[in-house]
Computed example of a mutant assay.
Amino acid sequence: MSSAPKTQLTARFLDPFTYLTLLSVVGVFACLVFSPIFMRSLVSKTIQVDPDIPEQLAPIQLKKEPIGALRIDVSAAIPDNHWVTYEIQLKDQQGQVIASGIKQAWRESGSWSEEGESGIWTEDDLVGGLDVRSTKSEPITIVLDVLEYSDISGKEIDQPVPFEISVVNGAVDTRYLWTGILGTAFLAFLALVVTPFSGKVVIDKLIGDSDISGRAILGGSNNLIRVSVNITADENSPRVLNVLVVINDGNGEQLYSDSHRIYLSFKKSESGKVTAAKGKLSTFFILESRSSYGFHVEVTPDSTIDRTALIVREHCKTLIPVSVTSLKSTQ
């Protein structure tokens, strides 16, 4: 004897990893969008610095921020075909250097001529900077020193160099956020692709006909069973097929029998002629007791069917809530 099948929509078997990766993508993207909110401008000015005479800015109060770091951006404003090497130092209130960096900045230009055409090219690399993560609130001083200033021939120039300085606190390095977005998006994509094929395959059969059967030991009260039927038909197939799915217990008693309508997708050649048709059915079950169960599939009308595949998986996960039929046998 068996009880009547019960079918209900459930989210019980949703794959948490898939939603966790999707949530991670959203979270990292939100950090990228809202990170500028935490930035606070401390300095924005232009100064002149003589070679070998360090220029010291007025002290600023560095505060510990929950997110981001102190960012110092320096851009040299030099003429074409000039080079300048400068050092940025960050000192605490005792005058000790807590961070420093050296930048070799340059700007070059010239002309080109090729096949009767000509023009002017310009290239430069002028911006240097520091990102410092503060562990405490304290006053700091920024010092800028021109170590070398020359033209492209190597002739030293004894003139002040203009620099544009920008200092912000709470700056976030978005390069890592973009890397995080790409990484979590890739994991989310993999989860979306793999989840429909999750679970252990217990039946995998292919036959060149419309009727196919298989038997395996499976089931359990917390074990989602996915029954997949893949159909390949010829060019004369109707658009709609009926797929009868039957499940029997170990004694041959019928626990489930229902017909499902599936719509085929047609494959066409380059000339537009239909060459084949394919359809797929996926149904979900819970077999309350673990035992031997037989699965039988019959596709009608069967005159155009080339191949039918039956794949049964257990311990499956889903991407969305699905209709699950619970079957219970008293064998």
Rank of each mutant, 00 (worst) to 15 (best):
S2C: 09
S3H: 11
A4M: 12
Q8R: 13
A11W: 09
F13S: 03
P16D: 05
L20K: 04
L20G: 13
S24R: 00
V25A: 06
G27S: 14
C31N: 08
P36I: 09
P36E: 07
F38G: 11
F38V: 06
L42A: 12
Q48E: 15
Q48I: 00
Q56D: 01
A58P: 00
A58T: 14
L62R: 05
G68Y: 04
G68H: 07
A69K: 12
R71L: 12
R71Y: 07
R71S: 14
D73V: 13
I78R: 03
P79M: 03
N81W: 09
T85H: 02
Y86P: 01
E87F: 00
Q89H: 07
L90V: 10
K91Y: 00
D92M: 09
Q93V: 08
V97L: 04
G101T: 15
Q104F: 06
A105P: 05
S109Q: 13
G110S: 12
E114V: 11
D124R: 12
V127Q: 14
G129W: 10
L130T: 05
D131F: 08
R133N: 10
K136W: 03
E138S: 14
T141W: 06
V143Y: 04
D145H: 14
D151E: 09
G154M: 11
E156F: 09
D158I: 08
V161P: 09
F163P: 03
E164N: 14
I165P: 06
V167I: 15
V167L: 13
V167R: 06
G170H: 02
A171M: 01
L177M: 08
L177C: 05
G180S: 07
L182G: 12
L187Y: 04
L192G: 08
V194N: 04
V194G: 00
P196Y: 08
F197V: 02
G199R: 02
G199E: 02
K200W: 02
K200E: 13
K200R: 14
V201Y: 00
D204C: 00
K205D: 05
K205V: 05
I207G: 00
G208M: 06
I212Y: 03
I217E: 06
L218G: 03
G220K: 04
N222T: 10
L224C: 07
L224Y: 06
R226T: 05
N230K: 10
S237P: 02
V240M: 08
V243Y: 01
V245G: 01
V245T: 13
G250S: 13
G252T: 04
E253P: 00
Y256D: 03
D258A: 09
S259H: 00
R261A: 12
I262Q: 07
Y263W: 07
L264N: 10
S265A: 11
F266A: 13
F266H: 13
S271M: 06
S271I: 05
G272Y: 09
K273D: 12
S282E: 15
S282Q: 14
I286A: 06
L287Q: 01
Y293R: 01
V297Y: 02
E298T: 12
T300Q: 12
T300E: 12
D302W: 03
T304P: 01
I305Y: 04
I305M: 02
T308R: 04
A309V: 00
E314V: 03
E314L: 04
P321R: 09
V322I: 13
V322M: 13
V322F: 02
V324S: 07
S329Q: 07
